[in-house]
Write a protein that binds this DNA or RNA. Structure first.
Lengths: 212, 212
DNA sequence: TGTCTTATTGGCCACTCACTCAATAACATC
DNA sequence: GATGTTATTGAGTGAGTGGCCAATAAGACA
């Protein structure tokens, strides 16, 4: 009998409990989708009653939105760590190689699903919408800074780092729009599209951003 | 009193009734999202009882999937009508101009929303997933044929029409991923990206595909 | 006009959701 | 050890969903 019975209550500091909930919600959202981030589901995940989750999140929308932000913030740091002020020659190129290598790997699929999920759900949930916009900006700015650093270091050329960052992100989003349906016969033409597009955008010879 | 009371029953041929339902479901899905395509909602739309919709669609998944297919088929025909075998010189260019002009207009927003919606929902609903894959192929092939016609007519150059079509669609999908969140500061860099990308892909001078 | 097929109704079920709230018990503080 | 605060429970509510089915009546056909 591993089961049932009124478990002993565990009483935690509100801040800690809340943060536990967001973390659990982020895990569920990333693995199974934001629709599965419900008061009950998160409660089960933590071994508490759903009423408690409702207590910390009087509107379930906030929980979903914070789950999204938590997951994407962590992911961004893993994909594209903040650059030092002067990454040295080739530093920006290495960062971009790493980014494209990671985003085109299957490990990125759940993140693609999460973004797709959030971009759609934002249609109905205003709170989530605001968080998505915020994360969009964060991701864009992070890429912009790498591009700017690369321009600074003469690694490549780009008249408008912001515009380039925006367009590179559009390409990433476009290429990952098919996570749930499978690319099928379209896999091959898509495979190197993002990298190639970025190379064109930055005036780099084809293949420069290919990971070794 | 425009309301209530047991309305007189209207008895229709099964095929007609079913097709009415799909049409109504497509309308709801396009305007409000596929999540709103429920047995009850479609029933209300037609002024019948939900049990009747359940009778024609024993699994609600089929209704949602067929709603999607119905809406996207109609949209595709409107965006990019089937080409005649030989569209004559400049015909392909005109078709692409029209396509990009329409997809970048605000009238296309609901279609963007629908695709985003379906691409996400396909994660959970296998029947819808199959329909999305099918429509994806249809849209791609339609573009491919225009590209092939343009190559044939020496309007532009392209080594692999299929790959070009796939990538152009990726660009369209990427650019329309922000319908629900608003492009904000990113609007300008995105604005001409699809068209420009297509011009590069087809070896055309920048601006060739701009609509007059 | 009467009969029969079946499209349609009306009502039900079991489920899940967010949300509410009085009662309870864990822990800090005295 | 007694007391008070409050994190947590347990048991609801109401609204929404898909799905099921016997009873009903519309319309075609004899």
């Amino acid at each position: 009998m591993t089961s049932r019975g009124p478990e002993k209550r565990v009483r935690k500091a509100p801040a800690e409990r809340r943060s536990e909930m967001v973390t659990a919600a982020a895990r569920v959202g990333l693995a199974e989708g934001l629709e599965c981030v419900t008061l009950r589901r998160v409660a089960d995940e933590l071994g508490v009653r759903s009423g408690l989750v409702g207590h910390y999140f009087p509107a379930a929308d906030r929980l979903v939105a914070e789950a999204f932000t938590s997951a994407t913030m962590a992911e961004l740091d893993s994909l594209l760590p903040e650059m030092s002020a002067d990454p040295g020659p080739g530093g920006a190129v290495r960062a971009l190689r790493r980014l494209f290598s990671l985003t085109s790997s299957a490990d990125f699929d759940n993140v693609s699903r999460l973004w797709l999920n959030a971009r759609h759900l934002a249609r109905y949930r205003p709170v989530l919408r605001d968080h998505v916009i915020e994360q969009d900006m964060l991701w864009c700015r992070r890429i912009e800074r790498v591009v700017a650093a690369g321009v600074e270091a003469r690694d490549f050329h780009c008249a408008d780092p912001w515009a380039a960052a925006v367009r590179i992100l559009v390409a990433i989003d476009g290429a990952s729009a098919y996570v749930n349906t499978g690319a099928g016969h379209r896999a091959a033409p898509i495979a190197d599209m993002v990298r190639t597009f970025a190379e064109t955008e930055l005036g780099l010879p084809v293949g420069t951003l290919e990971s070794s």
